[in-house]
Simulated scan of single mutants.
Amino acid sequence: MNESIVVKAEGLYKIFGRRPADAVKKLSAGVSRDELGKSATAAVIDASFEVYKGEIFVVMGLSGSGKSTLIRMLNGLLPATAGSVTVAGSPLTGISDKELRKLRQKNVSMVFQHFALMPHRTVLNNAAYALEVQGVEKTEREERALKILKLVGLDGWDQKYPSQLSGGMKQRVGLARALAAETDILLMDEAFSALDPLIRREMQEQLVTLQKELGKTIIFITHDLNEAMFLGDRIAMMHDGRIVQVGTPDEILTRPASHYVEQFVQDVDRTRVLTAGVVMDSSPDDVRSASLPGATAVSEDAPLAEIFGLAADSDRPLAVVDDHDNVVGSLGQETLLSALSHTPANGPLSVVEDEQATDITDGEAAR
């Protein structure tokens, strides 16, 4: 296994109901999810993907798409009907309960949507709980938990109880508890969806900041496309239990692999997702022209929303530069306007074909 791959799923299925193995055979033979009838519910169908060390990998889908079932298969909370999961080079599927507990303690922590704090414990003791389970001595676990609480913005709140906290603060405690365990992998299931919009945005920004500092590998589940686009280094789009596209936010936005994905992303604010480096003109002539003295320089990582004012004030294309201030392309007003078009570029990514853009509401069993 490639050392940069920390989580790998291959041919994962999760079937609820009677005769799940038969359902897997039918689905593998091309039977649709709906054709299984009421005897079986296919929550996850033939899911395969890899998550790389240090990235935020977002699984995005509507209610009923299978995303929450999928994340529970990645830490063994739900056993796979078929397929395999490998975590940090070790198999997760098919191992004993003892081996599973050991793998979780060493490698995987989880942050839930509804906080899951223990009301009779202080903030400090909640944050230190995973360390207590690991058998870490009290003084050490409290020292480690206090450092993490400060990191997530809860310095001075360690002796409070959950009932004394706002929703955003409770979620920070849940995040602190996961970080205090010092595992390399964080699973976050709709972790911010219960928060008010402003607090939610704060938590998203804080997660990005923490990720830059700590370098965790994060698998983040959400139904919110803007959240997925903001957080994800890569995004897996799910529909009807299947992963229909995996790609970077700009790849999914500019090269949707199916009609379903294209409809899903049509209302995204492209100016905040697309960057100068994605839409720039990069032919040798464009680079040479932009390298002439007097051109206004912008970073290739700059969102288009931050560039429009500069482009409007300039009578020539902007020079797009890399981290070493080397000119790598140019960006004129015409190119900027063209980038706002919803027309996808040619050449879809690797994809499992999906037929229709229909919402699904099969309920909790298929989430």
Rank of each mutant, 00 (worst) to 15 (best):
F112T: 08
E202W: 10
L210C: 01
V265A: 02
S63A: 12
D354P: 15
T217N: 00
E132A: 12
Q204M: 04
N346T: 04
F49D: 10
D322H: 10
A228T: 08
G54D: 12
E364H: 04
D362F: 09
A305L: 11
D34Q: 13
R255I: 04
V208S: 06
H324Q: 07
L349D: 13
R255G: 00
G66H: 00
S4P: 01
D267N: 11
S28T: 05
S350Y: 14
Y260F: 15
S166T: 14
E202V: 05
L100W: 05
T183K: 02
V208M: 15
L253K: 02
A366W: 00
N125G: 07
D250C: 04
L195F: 01
A130S: 13
I243D: 03
I185W: 01
P79H: 06
Q134A: 12
H120P: 06
L336M: 10
R101H: 07
A365D: 12
V328H: 06
A295W: 03
E35T: 07
A42M: 12
F16M: 13
P344E: 07
A116E: 12
R72I: 04
D359I: 13
A128G: 09
L77A: 01
L304F: 13
L337F: 11
T343G: 06
I243S: 04
A40H: 02
V24M: 13
